[in-house]
Every structure is written in C-alpha cells, then in structure tokens.
Design a protein around this nucleic acid. Structure first.
Lengths: 103, 103
DNA sequence: CGGCAGGTTTGATATACATCATACCTAACC
DNA sequence: GGTTAGGTATGATGTATATCAAACCTGCCG
C-alpha cells in the first residue's frame, strides 16, 4: 500500500508506472534535473520552470510521486521534491544514468 | 529519415519514443521475449500470443518498429520481427537488461 | 481454383492523458 | 487583516491511444 502521501513503498516500485512516468518529456526533464543535484537535494515544483500551468504541474508531480520516482515533503505552503535515488538505483540499476545521458 | 519500411536509423534512435513504446505492457512483453532469444532471432507477430485482435497487434508492432526497437522483415505473406539488440545496447546500455529483469 | 493463415488498412469507438481556468488552502509578509 | 506566493482540487476540453470489426492483400496448400 502507498503511504498517506501517496508514495509507494520501495518494494512496490514496478517498471510499468515508472516507464509511464518518464515517457513524458516534461517529467523526464524533472527527473534528470533532480538526478543532477547532489543526493538528497530538495526542490520545489516551481523551480523547474515547466512551460505549463500550476495545475498541470501538480498533475505531473503527482504522476512522478505515485510511480515512486520522487518523494514529496509537505512544508505547509510549499512542497519540496526529492529523487528517490537509492531505491530507484537498487530496483532499476542504470535507469537514472540512461535518463541523464539522454537529457 | 526512416527507411521505406519505417525503420529509423541507428543515429536517430531517441529515448522518448523508446520509452513510449515500452511503457505499454504488451509491447514490453514482446521486447522481453525477443531479448530472451539468441541474437538475430526472428519471430512472426502471431507467435507472441498477445490477447488482442490482429489489427491491434499490427498497431503495437508498428509502434515498436517506429521507435526503432525492432526490425521487421517482409516475407510476403509473413513478417518477422527481430530485436535491434546491438543498436539499442549501444545507444541505451542497460535498457534491455532492465526490461528482462522486470518481465 | 478455392480456401486458409498471417498481416495490413481503414474507420469507428472508448478510454486515457495533458492541459487549462477557476476556486480554494496554507503560510509568510506588510 | 489583507495580500501574495506555492500548491492542490475540481471540472471541462481536446488530443492521443488502444481497441475492434470488416475488407483486403499475399503466398501456400490441397
């Protein structure tokens, strides 16, 4: 089961939703940006300058979260995103490198 | 440009269409099956026992072909599919292993 | 020749997806 | 308190995608 924030557990990460998520160029861009940051880095949604409305942005970050690619931490009026790097690397070794190399 | 059969050149392989293609479970299954075969193996579409109609099958194989994942060879009344293994492995190292490990 | 099996094409349909505008929530700041 | 900034929720819309049925093509086989 996913936690209350809609984050799947590490053991629940499956390739299908992950591929669905990163098939979208905007979402792939977000993952690539986060992968370039040092591990554990947090960024808020608006820092990615996506060329879409706020609502659409929320939608994309939700897909990334539900696929298990990012963890979102609620700070009240601000929500920061963190790449679930180690878990992804364990379950899907090479995936992040692939995205980075083709970003 | 793609050749007359709709196959992109090796240099034209891009991650976007590839991910779009393997995001679908049926298509991912086909790629995994082909990846399990010895290199260069050819299989006709109907040998995958996909639970869809012939027309839908044609559609899925077309997506795989246009993404550059498979090469389709026309034998007149039969069309065989071949994984473009070396080209994929060169451009996107680890991708096939990832699919195989999660099939 | 006539049928059959493997595939494609076309046209239709239904569902999923990306997108936006609007309204709303929460904390910070003046 | 009012405003502003970051984000979410809802509802609507347009487009893409998956799906199928029906008609067709190609080679093979009886």
């Amino acid at each position: 089961m996913a936690d209350s924030g809609g984050h799947p557990e590490s053991e629940e990460l499956t390739l299908g939703p992950i591929l669905m998520a990163i098939a979208d160029p905007l979402r792939r861009h977000v993952v690539a940006e986060l992968a370039r940051e040092p591990d554990g880095a947090e960024r808020n949604c608006s820092s990615f300058a996506l060329p879409v409305s706020k609502a659409t942005r929320t939608h994309h970050f939700r897909v990334l979260r539900e696929a298990g690619l990012i963890r979102q931490i609620d700070y009240g009026n601000c929500r920061k995103s963190q790449l679930r790097r180690a878990e992804i690397e364990t379950k899907f070794p090479g995936l992040l490198a692939l995205i980075l190399a083709n970003a």
